[in-house]
Amino acid sequence: MNNFEVKIWDDERRFCTFYTVQFEDSDENETDKFFIRFDNFPTYESATQALLSFILLSIGDDHGAIDELLNRYEEEVIGLPVKGRVKLGEFTYNYPDFPLRIYVLKITDEIVVLFNGGIKDGPTNMESSLHHNWVEACEFARRIIDGIKDGAVVVDEVNRNLLNGKGTEEIFL
């Protein structure tokens, strides 16, 4: 995987700071690419709007990145939106069947890194066109987690920030 920057995507939400990733040789970050792509696709326009509302409003402004809303664990990353069959204890609830999936890495309840995603056109990541996006998201996540472990990425929970090892905001991995 090429080098990439971990950068702020939205730090103005009430309960959560959202980061994204951008390859060094790319003009756009991966999350903007995802939303631009599907916002321009008439079939998925309303799903795109619903997913964005869920991320920025439900997670960002109302509840934070709590486990009840980030419950679709897929190896190193989490898939959004909240799982179609939300299981709370013994109960299962239905969320509208979403055709889209975006992958995220939860750092804390207040810091989330958003990646890219795609269309859920198969029963599993392995069997759908999401496979490439999921593999890439897992690699991003591994590099970020390794960065946190070795000090290249510092989690500032007080300010809801990610910093590099020198205490500034430019994070290249």
Binding site: D10, D11, T31, F35, T48, Q49, L52
Partner: peptide, 22 residues
């Protein structure tokens, strides 16, 4: 700082979609 792409999409998102998500 906010994503301009997200702002643009959210500004045209119907209010009912936002209300439902929340």
């Amino acid at each position: 700082m906010r994503s301009k792409v997200a702002d643009r999409i959210l500004s045209k998102t119907p209010e009912e979609t936002k209300i439902f998500a929340r």
